[in-house]
């Protein structure tokens, strides 16, 4: 069984990120870059599957600049068997990423593509579903539990109203939600030790064709400052005065 885990390099999700005053880019305040937290959950899940079944093989893939190597090294340290860096300094939107991943999936023939439900930088929530559509594979998004057995995936997934369970034949695409697992912590020595694992670099096989373009970035509107109230009674009378409670 082969599991392909796409990895996106994103700015630390806990960093304060702002739009530059001229609207042309982001001010990340010198924050670190990390594996997108949802991709880390995907990787953790793949590693757990391999711990249960040693025949599972995990390929981590990233599309982007040479600095994505840091995140792939970490993926190898977490337990990926090999990593592929599709090196490109071009801009890639979600459909372009999906097209490149589709080409790679055709080559590697994974049984499962396990990826994050969204990236915490662009919050797009598109690439996995687009990949599944391009391959005409079934999908289960927002997984909170994943079982693989007998060539099938059984996935409990989070929905707007709670949860449902889907079952489908492999190959398929599954995206991870927060409660699928808690990724293991990898200390620096672990990352250094994984240096001997294979990391292949190669150019993309498709050209990014941007279907959307970001033309401006702005600060969100600010709220007028509020105030502290001294007691529950004062709060209730303010809310009544505003007409938000009866």
């Amino acid at each position: 069984m082969k599991i392909m885990v796409p990895i996106k390099r994103v700015v630390d999700p806990y960093a304060k990120v702002k739009a530059l005053p001229d609207g042309t880019g982001l001010d990340t305040g010198g924050a670190k870059f990390e594996i997108n937290p949802f991709d880390e959950i995907a990787l953790e899940e793949a590693v757990r599957k391999r711990e249960a079944d040693p025949s599972v093989q995990i390929v981590a893939v990233s599309i982007g600049s040479s600095s994505c190597e840091d995140q792939l090294r970490k993926a190898l340290a977490m337990g990926a068997d090999e990593a592929i860096l599709i090196e490109s300094d071009a801009e890639w939107d979600s459909p372009s990423v999906a097209a490149e991943l589709a080409a790679l999936a055709k080559e590697l023939a994974p049984d499962l593509v396990l990826m994050g439900k969204q990236a915490t930088d662009d919050d797009n929530n598109q690439a996995a579903q687009m990949l599944a559509a391009l391959l005409d594979w079934p999908q289960a998004t927002f997984a909170s539990k994943l079982d693989l057995a007998g060539g099938r995936a059984t996935v409990a997934r989070e929905t707007d109203t709670g949860e449902e369970v889907l079952e489908m034949a492999l190959p398929c695409v599954v995206t991870t939600d927060l409660r699928l697992n808690e990724p293991r912590y990898i200390a620096l020595p672990g990352i250094i030790k994984a240096r001997s694992k294979p990391l292949a670099k190669r150019p993309p096989t498709t050209e990014p064709r941007l279907r959307t373009r970001t033309v401006r970035l702005d600060a969100p509107p600010t709220r007028p400052p509020g105030r502290k109230v001294g007691s529950v009674d004062e709060l209730v009378s303010e809310l009544k005065a505003r007409g938000v409670v009866a």
């Binding site: 915490t120 662009d122 919050d123 279907r211 959307t212 970035l217 702005d218």
Partner: peptide
């Protein structure tokens, strides 16, 4: 063809044009 959407957990509002 031009829309706004929040990114990076609502810290930034992106103006996006659709090319298709």
């Amino acid at each position: 063809k031009t829309f706004q959407r929040p990114i990076v957990a609502g810290s930034v509002i992106a103006t996006v044009t659709v090319e298709t």
